[in-house]
Amino acid sequence: MGLMQIIKRGFENPRLVSIVYAIQLILAMTIGLQVYQVFGASIGNSLSLEGLKVGDAHMVINDLLNTHGASLSPLLGQVRWMVIVYLIVAAFVHGGIWHSLINGYDKVSIWIGGSTYFFRMLMIGFIMSFIFIIWSTLVWGPYLSKIRYWMEHLPSEEPILWGGIAMVVLWSFGSIFIFVASSFCKVLVIRDQEKVGSALWKGIKKSITKTWKCLPVLFLFFVLLAFLYLMHSFVDDWTFLSTTIGVFLLFVIQQLIVWIKIGLRVSTYAYLKDRL
C-alpha cells in the first residue's frame, strides 16, 4: 500500500477527524480567549500592540509579564489541568476512533465505541504511559545525570551532542515500539474482545516482531508532522500576516494544520490496525 493510500485512510471520514478537532478546539479556546482578555485588559489601549503584530514583541511581552505576569501565570496552571482532563477525554475519543476503524464508521460509531471501551482504553493508556515514563527515565536519567561530570572532564561537547542525538534515536525507537504496542492492545481489545491484561501481553509480543516492518511508514508520518511544524514557523513569520485579515488567515492555516495532524493520527491507527 502506498503512503498516499495510507494517508487517505485517515481522511476517509472527515466527520470523525472533525469531531476530535472540535473537542480539542473547544478546550484550547478556553485558554486562547482568556489570553485575549488578559492582553486586552492589560495593554488593550496601548499603541505597543502594533509591535505584537509585526514580530517586534520581545519588549512588549517582557513589559507585559513584568507588570501583569500575575494575570497570565494562572493560565499556565490551567493548561496543565487541561492536559490531564484531555488525557481522559482522549481515552473516550480514541476508543471511538478505533471502534470506527475496526467495525465501520457511521454517525454514532465514535460515541458508541467511546462509551463501550472507555475504561479499557483508559487502563491501556495509563499502563502504556507508565511504561513510557519508565523507558524515558531509563534512557535519559543516566545521560542527564552525567552531563555535569562530562562538562568538567571532556575536552569537547561533540560526543555529548552526538551521544544525545543517539539517545534521541534510541528513545524514539522505544517510544514507537510502545506506541505500536499500545495500538495493537487496543485493536485486540476491540476486534478480538480480549481482556486488557491478555491484550497487553499479546500486543507487546506482536509489536516486538511487527514494529520493525512498520518503522518506514511511521518514520514518514513523523517527517510529515515535522514538516507541518516547520511550515507553521515560516508562515507565522510572514510579515503580511500582521494585518487583521492576515491574522485571521494565520488562524485558518493553524487550524488546518491541527486538523491534518488529527487526520494523520487516524491514518496511523488505520495502518497499524491492518498490520495486526
Binding site: Q24, L25, L52, L87, H94, F179
Partner: peptide
C-alpha cells in the same frame, strides 16, 4: 481606537499551541 490584531495573533497562537500540547500528550491514550 486600539488595533487588536496583535492580541488576536497571540490568542490564536495560544489556541494552536494548546491544541498541539494536548495532541502530543495523548499519543498513548
Amino acid at each position: 481606537a486600539p488595533d487588536n490584531g496583535g492580541i488576536w495573533k497571540y490568542a490564536t497562537r495560544s489556541i494552536y499551541w494548546v491544541q498541539n500540547i494536548v495532541q502530543s500528550a495523548s499519543f498513548l491514550m
